[in-house]
Amino acid sequence: MADLLDQIGLGGERVRMVNLSSAMAVQFAEAVEAMTETVRELGPNPLRDAQHTE
């Protein structure tokens, strides 16, 4: 999946798999924070801009 996103040109870092148990609330919050940070660095999905300019 990540490889496909790379080929498309969106960046494979935009997708992430996380393994959690139902008791891992703290880890869930951390995963969300980490993912948000990664995506913030990558910037917005370039397709959104493409959609807006059409």
Binding site: L4, Q7, I8, G9, L10, P46, L47, A50
Partner: peptide, 10 residues
């Protein structure tokens, strides 16, 4: 889906 996205990006 991949072609739609890639072509749009290009």
């Amino acid at each position: 889906s991949a072609l739609r996205m890639k072509s749009k990006l290009e």
